[in-house]
Design a binder for these strands. Structure first.
Length: 354
DNA sequence: GACGTCACGGTTGAC
DNA sequence: TGGTCAACCGTGACG
């Protein structure tokens, strides 16, 4: 029985410790910042700690993405099938080769780069466990030796080669069509993806392009499978928001939001539904009992992030009307884009900065 | 008062 | 299958 839980911060906002804010909120933070709203005001308006606002904006400015980072998991493995294959080749061609020599060759041959080249110890382990000593067969290999492709046998579940690929059932696919597979270069994905352009991050294309929307339909992935995971960020070819916005909505369902409207109902994993975010984002920032009785009067009937101006609690009006170019870099959004966003989110953006 | 930074307690997911 | 580990999270406090 999933219990509703959450915590209330000093500003009265509700959050789940350890979990990212809903993408709707993250998007709102960025949007307001783009409009020149000061972070402190954003913090108060959205009832998110200023440290969080600062972090999200800093990340956005740095990476162009509003997405939270990948939570959990392990580092992308460097011993990809391709690497193992090459190591095997090196070993076969020169049984006396040292691990460090293999390492150098991996680099020299471009199989790996400096970011994802296996360590010497890893290479040694590969030689020992996956390939075996070609000159002195590993006794441990005997009797349980896999077929000749055994060293590659884990390819089918190689977790970092499906940047954005999910089967309709949510099963990870090893070789998604149309998606570049860069399994051998995944380690650099620790960085944020450059593919998240500013304009895309704000969801212009995702919101306006039916194909982008359509591409998000029919999936019921977990959060990280949408590209939030570190390993899938890199080649996440779509903008951050079209799916990323879904991410949080999966974790923090906001049924009435436009963002979640792109997600089939089945995307809401019951086990991951935090009741605290079960309502629209407006409920998230609404005064009073934030995590209770949401999705009622605060729900925007027409969708959107469900945060029309009245939802952003009006007890505190923006005190500072910051003009364009005042503090922040000019918004990458055109006026039309702002209007588009405004309409989509059910938000009157002009009210915040006037 | 605004804001960047960091410690903290927490969650997550690959291994 | 459960534990471990290392990533990330947002908050709150400090400067």
């Amino acid at each position: 029985m999933e219990q509703t839980y959450g915590e209330v911060n000093q500003l009265g906002g509700v959050f789940v410790n350890g979990r990212p804010l809903p993408n709707a909120i993250r998007l709102r933070i960025v949007e307001l910042a783009q409009l020149g709203i000061r972070p402190c005001d954003i913090s108060r308006q959205l009832r998110v700690s200023h440290g969080c606002v600062s972090k999200i904006l800093a990340r956005y400015n740095e990476t162009g993405s509003i997405l939270p980072g990948a939570i959990g998991g392990s580092k992308p493995r460097v011993t990809t099938p391709n690497v193992v294959k090459n190591i095997r080749d090196y070993k076969q061609s020169d049984p006396g080769i040292f691990a460090w020599e293999i390492r150098d060759r991996l680099l020299a041959d471009g199989v790996c780069d400096k970011y994802n080249v296996p360590s010497v110890s890893s290479i040694s382990r590969i030689l020992r466990n996956k390939i075996g000593n070609l000159s002195q067969p590993n006794p441990y290999e005997n009797g349980k030796q896999a077929p000749p492709q055994s060293s590659l046998s884990y390819n089918h579940i190689y977790p970092y080669s499906y940047p954005n690929a999910m089967s309709p059932s949510g099963t990870k696919m090893s070789s998604p069509p149309g998606v570049p597979v860069t399994g051998g270069h995944v380690s650099i994905s620790r960085g944020w993806p450059s593919a998240h352009t500013v304009s895309n991050i704000l969801g212009i294309r995702a919101f306006m392009d039916p194909t982008a929307i359509a591409s998000a339909e029919g999936y019921a992935p977990k959060m990280e499978d949408w590209g939030v995971n570190r390993a899938t960020f890199q080649s996440h070819g779509v903008n951050g928001i079209d799916k990323s916005s879904i991410d949080a909505d999966i974790k923090y369902p906001q049924p009435s939001s436009t963002l979640s409207s792109y997600v089939p109902a089945c995307a809401y994993s019951p086990s991951n539904q935090y009741g605290v975010y079960s309502g629209p984002a407006g409920g998230y920032v609404s005064p009073g009992h934030h995590w209770q009785a949401q999705g009622t009067s605060l729900t925007h009937p027409g969708g959107g992030v469900a945060m029309h101006p009245s939802d952003i609690h009006s007890s505190m009006a923006f005190k500072h009307a910051v003009r364009d170019g005042d503090r922040k870099p000019p918004s990458p959004l055109s006026k039309q884009q702002h209007e588009a966003l405004s309409g989509i989110h059910g938000l009157s953006l002009s009210t915040s900065s006037s």
